[in-house]
Simulated assay, not measured.
Amino acid sequence: MPVAAQEHAHAGHDHAAMHGAPASAPLQAAVSGDWRSAANAARDQYRHPLQTLEFFGVQPQQTVIEITPGGGWYSEILAPYLRGQGHYVAAVVDPQALPAGGGRDYQQRTRDGLEKKFAGAPALFDKTTVVAYDPAAPVLGKPGSADVVLTFRNVHNWRASNQAEGMFRAFFAVLRPGGTLGVVEHRAKADVPADDKSGYVGQAQVIAMAEAAGFKLEERSEINANPRDTKDHPNGVWTLPPSNTHDAADDARYKAIGESDRMTLRFVKPRP
């Protein structure tokens, strides 16, 4: 078992014990599903989807919005898990909200790829909704319509684009009172400036952003921690797997480190 998995130590109390049971059979079945790509499943040792979704308290009857799912790594788990009783919403950047150029083209390719993935496997994704939002004025759905909002390794991008505050306000607006915001992000050693290029963010900074939007930190976890990550790589987090932006001669070195050290934070939207 990887070090990060061994160091699954929650602050306060154990989430599974709090809910009176280990991870549900449906969640385990979704993580173990043979429809998941081999490349995606190979990253479970670093991303710990079973423990992460359990920690966030995701239940099969909930409406869950994932922010910018990228290639659909978590979609392969969440969509089938929620398909029977709940609702999986993939929130993507609206390419038409961006000026013409490379940024718009990238977001269009990303959206097209995700929608092609969904269309190609209706047994998994036929009940999935794709919501496109303007990152400068994000609206993710009807106010109070979601039970859970999840974001994986996105905060550094929003900070660099001066969009983080607006995104966290959008999360707060779309969640029902008592709803959950789950955040996983590359963790810096300390606070970093907004224009930092490393991809890492200070944990205290993420907590402060969420609290400024109205959230309350409920619990933090070390599920996705990696103490081998020294966080001083020449190309930031992208030096490490899965990006592997490094010289071939250094491959063994960075493979031994594994993926980045990550914070895992669970926030709640307070009830009135």
Results as ranks from 00 to 15, higher is better:
Asn154Lys: 01
Arg104His: 01
Pro135Met: 03
Ala137Trp: 07
Asp126Thr: 09
Leu150Ile: 12
Tyr133Ser: 08
Leu150Pro: 09
Arg159Gln: 10
Ala137Lys: 15
Pro122Trp: 02
Asp112Phe: 00
Gly102Ala: 12
Glu115Ser: 12
Ser161Trp: 10
Asp147His: 01
Val131Leu: 10
Asp105Lys: 11
Gly141Gln: 11
Gly101Lys: 03
Leu124Phe: 03
Lys142Thr: 15
Lys117Asp: 07
Asp147Thr: 01
Phe125Asp: 03
Asp105Pro: 04
Tyr106Cys: 00
Pro122Met: 03
Arg109Phe: 05
Phe152Arg: 03
Val155Phe: 11
Lys116Leu: 14
Phe118Pro: 10
Gly113Leu: 01
Asp147Pro: 03
Lys127Asn: 08
Ala137Arg: 15
Pro122Thr: 05
Tyr133Phe: 15
Val131Trp: 06
Phe118Ser: 10
Val148Arg: 05
Lys116Gln: 15
Thr151Phe: 02
Thr110Trp: 07
Asp112Tyr: 00
Ala121Thr: 11
Lys127Cys: 03
Ala119Leu: 00
Val148Ile: 11
Val155Trp: 05
Arg111Ala: 15
Leu114Thr: 12
Gln107Trp: 01
Gly120Phe: 00
Asn154Asp: 08
Val131Pro: 06
Ser145Glu: 13
Val155Lys: 07
Ala132Lys: 12
Ala121Ser: 09
Thr128Val: 14
Trp158Met: 09
Ala136Gln: 09
Arg109Lys: 09
Gly113Trp: 04
Ala123Cys: 02
Thr110Glu: 14
Leu150Met: 08
Asn157Glu: 10
Leu150Val: 14
Pro135Ala: 06
Gly144Thr: 13
Val149Lys: 04
Asp105Gln: 12
Asp134Phe: 10
Tyr106Ala: 02
Thr128His: 04
Ala132Tyr: 03
Asp105Trp: 06
Lys142Ala: 15
Ala119Gly: 10
Val148Trp: 06
Thr110Lys: 15
Arg159Trp: 01
Arg159Leu: 12
Gln107Lys: 04
Leu140Ala: 08
Leu114Tyr: 14
Pro143Ile: 04
Gly120Thr: 01
Asp126Met: 07
Gln108Leu: 08
Arg104Ser: 02
Lys117Ile: 08
Asp134Thr: 10
Thr151Ala: 00
Ala119Glu: 02
Asp147Lys: 00
Thr128Gly: 05
Phe125Cys: 03
Leu124Asn: 09
Ala160Gln: 14
Thr110Val: 13
Ser161Leu: 05
Ala146Cys: 06
Gly101Asn: 01
Arg111Met: 15
Gln107Val: 00
Val148Phe: 08
Gln108Arg: 14
Thr129Tyr: 08
Val139Pro: 01
